Computed example of a mutant assay.
Amino acid sequence: MASFWAKEVPATVLVAALLIWIMPMMIGTFTLTVLIIYGMLGFSLGLIWGFGGILCFGQAAFFGLGAYTYAIAAINIGDSTIPMLLAVLVPAVFAALLGAMMFYGRLTDVYLGVITLVVTLILFKFINSTAGPEYVIGKARLGGFNGIPGFQTLNVPGRPNDYIFGDPFYYVCAVLLLIVYLLVSWLLKSSFGRVAVGIRENETRVALMGYDVSARKTVLFAIGAAIAGLAGALFANWGEIVTPNLFSLSQTAEIIIWCIVGGLGTRFGPIVGAAGLAYLKFLLGQQSMIDNTLLTGIILVLFVLFLPKGLVPAVVSLWRISFGQRRKIRKHGARRIRRGGVGNG
């Protein structure tokens, strides 16, 4: 673990700082901000699915729950600090309770996927049906399909009138993604992370070794929900409105596609997949000739057929093959030179 903080963290921070500085020169910070938020959302599923082996169709539910929690709390409190914390805590607690019921109930992967999908659809239907004036939490009306607009956006802690928006909000989101990335990287390199990967590979063997598999899967599930909730709160600040579409089935499908395209089992893959496909969708939204959903489906099929491991693992493999061969050639040539030198002498 000491090598992680000494070697990997400085390099990661340096690369992230360069990207945070360079990217606004190519893409506007308003668009970059939502790409970062989607990257965090994809990262949340990449953690529990890619490293824990838990295929969850509920990340959209946790994303929307975080956004709605923030909006409701911000309207009632009038400050963003506590709402941001609640937006992380509420989805985490909800996921912990749901996960405990599923994992201690020893449900198979198929039933896990079905239950998380049903939970997402239930929340979507419920939020859509809250248009009446009786659906109020404190001062906040849920608004039904119209959503909740006009809540307190991110501000300097203790100073509600000092809003954080525009370029500063972009940097806040980027730094939060970096912090989440480093914390998850540290977690995966710890004993907990190694056991989680072991559960993904062979759950029965890990259980026979004496580990409480259900408890560890529940904790990992809750951590993924907390990250999705944070992304939801940031999205609420970015859009300044929350609607039931955050819980939609299309949102759920997109998150899964992001992870598949980017590369499961990698930390950076889901972030790249989410940001890349979201930006592609943004570009296609400026024209009407090609349908976004059709193109996304084609991309998914192509990746499943030709790059089943995802984009990032393919690039890494190509890099290793290319530069690995060059290193072998250089080493082989150096050995021949040394041998020739010894023979001539």
Rank of each mutant, 00 (worst) to 15 (best):
A228Y: 01
L220T: 08
F235G: 01
L187F: 15
A196D: 00
S248V: 05
F192S: 15
L230S: 01
G198D: 10
A233F: 01
L220E: 06
S214T: 03
W238S: 05
V184N: 07
L230E: 00
S190V: 12
T218H: 08
G198W: 10
F247L: 10
A207W: 00
N202I: 01
A233P: 07
F247T: 11
G210S: 09
S248M: 06
A226W: 08
T204I: 13
L187S: 10
D212I: 05
P244H: 05
M209I: 02
S185H: 09
A233V: 02
R194K: 14
G198K: 12
A207Q: 15
E203L: 04
A236D: 09
E240C: 00
I223M: 12
I241A: 13
E201M: 11
V206Q: 06
L230F: 02
G229D: 05
V213E: 03
L249V: 12
G224Y: 05
V219D: 01
P244Y: 05
G224W: 04
V242M: 09
I227E: 03
K189T: 07
V219R: 11
F221A: 05
M209E: 12
S214W: 01
V242H: 04
F235C: 02
N245I: 03
D212T: 05
V206Y: 03
A207R: 15
K217Y: 02
I227Y: 01
A215Q: 11
